[in-house]
């Protein structure tokens, strides 16, 4: 008797979400099996990578991370263009760290003006990520949504604290929301329900399950992502059938290990490769857990992941 390999029976499908507008618009999602389980279902749309662009010149980056962008670090528009022209970025993620009230505390107006400039300069889908201060993000994201009406941005993080305000402008000005919850499947589901109740169309919701870096709690996020996918695909939980975004570049490159020099950490190997590999491994793992969109920093780690994706998805 021939051996029959047992198969998982899937009843759900991840929603297909269109990101951006025009020729360079991208569709993500659509999976009908666990990630890369091509022997059980389809993964018709490849996971995508957005390259990070920062709104102010980074002052504490590892030399390895800064090197590719040293010439554009003070100019987000040039930075975004370099990502696309030189590194072939298919998406851009604008990180609005300078709006943080505990940091530079730049105003919503400044952030919106900058976002508009970047949005006008690039034709690929644009993610706009706030400073993770719900109150400030509300103000900033509202202004951005209004000023960039009709540009189909992906805006986040949208949390339980500000989903009404940010959700409302996303509906009114036609953007996609990134629903962010702290590593908890039920909270993720609840926020998606709340956004739906508010009136945000299902075609404009992405999940940010919260991602930790390798060695910094990645496994917690991994488990929750797995569970979100299991609920979405095998348990007919339709409020979890949305693509997931992992904002991981930021997390990896802020770790001690990614920044330490050879002198500071002689046993941790070549610092020029260390951060790149940490970022690539983190990305690889969240892809295995079900990520659809990765926000990454280093061109080399991105190249490694693109290679991996091409290999795994080659039929």
């Amino acid at each position: 008797m021939a051996l029959e390999i047992p198969k998982v029976s899937y009843s759900g499908k991840i929603r297909e979400i269109v990101l951006g507008k025009g020729d360079k618009a991208i569709t993500v999602g659509g999976g009908t099996s666990y990630p890369f389980y091509l022997f059980e279902g389809q993964m018709p749309l490849k996971p995508r990578i957005a390259m990070e662009v920062y709104d102010s010149p980074p002052d504490d980056w590892a030399p390895t991370a800064l090197e590719p962008f040293a010439d554009v670090a003070g100019d987000p528009v040039a930075w975004a263009k370099k990502c696309i022209d030189t590194y072939g970025a298919e998406m851009i993620a604008l990180q609005l760290v300078s709006t943080d009230p505990n940091g530079e505390n730049r105003s919503a107006e400044e952030a919106a003006a900058l976002t508009k400039k970047v949005a006008e300069a690039v034709d690929v889908p644009l993610i706009v990520w706030g400073c993770n201060n719900a109150e400030k993000d509300t103000e900033v994201l509202k202004k951005i949504a209004e000023d960039c009406a009709g540009r189909s941005l992906m805006i986040g993080p949208v949390t339980e604290a500000n989903y009404k305000q940010v959700g409302a402008v996303a509906i009114g000005y036609e953007h996609t929301v990134i629903a962010s919850t702290p590593i908890d499947i039920n909270l993720a589901k609840q926020l998606n329900i709340l956004l739906g109740n508010l009136g945000v169309p299902d075609g404009r919701i992405l999940i940010d399950p919260t991602t930790g870096a390798l060695g910094y709690g990645l496994e917690y996020g991994y488990s929750v992502m797995e569970r979100i996918r299991m609920a979405a695909l095998t348990q007919e939980d339709e409020r979890l059938q949305f693509p997931m975004v992992c904002n991981l570049g930021k997390e990896v490159w802020k770790t001690k290990e990614a920044k330490q020099s050879r002198d500071e950490a002689p046993k941790l190997g070549d610092p020029a490769k260390r951060g790149v590999l940490m970022e690539a491994i983190t990305a690889q793992l969240v892809l295995a857990a079900g990520a659809d969109i990765l926000i990454m920093r280093h061109p080399e780690s991105i190249a490694l992941i693109q290679d991996m994706l091409n290999d795994l998805l080659a039929a």
């Binding site: 009404k164 305000q165 402008v169 009114g172």
Partner: peptide
Amino acid sequence: LRKRGVEFVDGT
């Protein structure tokens, strides 16, 4: 409508 309508949605 859009500017004010947003306030109706978010509850302000």
